[in-house]
């Protein structure tokens, strides 16, 4: 018998079940794109019939880090840039959990960039949503890793001399097996992409364009958006790395020229997740480790019986 009965309940859910009674009203600025992520995540969770208590939402620091304050589930609001390693271990400890990690572009592509690359490389089975507003919001508008070259801010008074980071390309090259970009201005596509991302067995990365009307662009600047999978002007095979890479490159450049491209870019449904790889080589148990600590009949192994012979 499982000690975690919220897992796999599979009952019909209403999106309002994910609105916390304690703090139903987010403190984000009016018009903030973050509302779009929250709404899409609630919609996706309801569509998938997930219990709030089988979900663990880990976040970093920044406006985006508040996501799990406003989303009803188990939550871990961690430290700047570190939501991924915490999510990875939680999923390894109890693969039954539905784990969603989230953070901003500074959090995920800047201070936590190393974790991002390695999580993608290892193909851990969970979803990472990056609130990409091309700016540091909560600290009041400094230039971020995705801010365009020439971006002026209080800490870059003469405009940034740096090329912006290419989040989609970096994700693909690092090894993510599902990569998509969506936008707060496109709520239906956002929800559908998050549903797919959560369902995907492996690391799914969603770069989510969230306008920051206070410090950067407002919603209008992300409209019109183009869905590359729908549009006849674009041709992509999302199962092909090279095709995905080309489209990502084009998408990253286009954003800074005012063309907002979104959609699914890469989906490798065949690659085993990290958990599967690890079980394959005998370095991860089949039963969730977390269950063992609640199993009163489990016979814990002893050094005295197993490991002392080589020291005698």
């Amino acid at each position: 018998m499982s000690a975690f009965n919220a897992i796999g309940e599979n009952v019909e859910r209403d999106r309002n079940e994910y609105t916390p009674g304690l703090e139903p009203q987010p403190t984000w600025c009016p018009g903030c794109g973050d509302f779009g992520v929250l709404k899409a995540l609630k919609g996706a969770a309801a569509e998938l019939g997930l219990s709030p208590e089988e979900m663990l939402v880990t976040t970093g620091i920044g406006c985006s880090g508040k996501l799990n304050s406003y989303f009803e589930s188990y939550g871990f609001h961690t430290i700047h840039g570190r939501s991924l390693p915490i999510a990875r271990a939680a999923k390894l400890a109890n693969p039954g959990l539905t784990v969603v990690a989230a953070g901003g572009d500074g959090d995920g592509y800047g201070i936590g960039g190393n974790h991002f690359m390695h999580t993608a490389r290892e193909n851990h089975d969970f979803t990472y949503i990056v609130f990409n507003n091309e700016i540091f919001g909560l600290t009041k508008g400094q230039t971020s890793p995705t801010s365009p070259k020439g971006h002026k801010s209080k800490t870059q008074p003469h405009g940034s001399a740096k090329q912006p980071l290419r989040p989609l390309s970096m994700s693909l090259n690092s090894g993510a097996s599902y990569v998509a970009r969506t936008a707060a201005v496109n709520p239906n596509q956002a929800k559908d992409i998050i549903v797919e991302a959560i369902q995907h067995d492996g690391f799914s990365h969603v770069d989510f364009l969230t306008q920051c009307p206070t410090w950067n662009k407002d919603a209008k600047q992300y409209v019109p958006y183009i869905d590359i999978n729908e549009s006849e002007d674009y041709d992509i095979d999302i199962t092909d790395r090279k095709s995905a890479a080309d489209m990502m490159f084009e998408t990253e450049d286009a954003l800074h020229e005012g063309t907002v491209l979104t959609g699914r870019y890469y989906h490798d449904a065949d690659r085993p997740s990290y958990q599967q790889e690890k079980q394959q080589i005998g370095e991860m148990p089949e039963e969730p480790l977390a269950e063992r600590y609640f199993d009163e009949d489990y016979e814990w192994e002893r050094t005295h019986d197993l490991f002392l012979d080589k020291h005698k």
Binding site: T58, A89, A90, L92, N114, L306
Partner: peptide, 30 residues
């Protein structure tokens, strides 16, 4: 020794991640 007792060892990208993983695993009940 961990594989022999059904445990998990993770060699990760840096020590920030290492400590964070231990915290994540403990948070999830291990």
């Amino acid at each position: 020794n961990l594989p022999e007792v059904g445990g998990i060892s993770e060699q990760v990208e840096d020590e920030i991640a290492a400590a964070a993983l231990a915290i994540g695993a403990s948070h999830a009940g291990v």
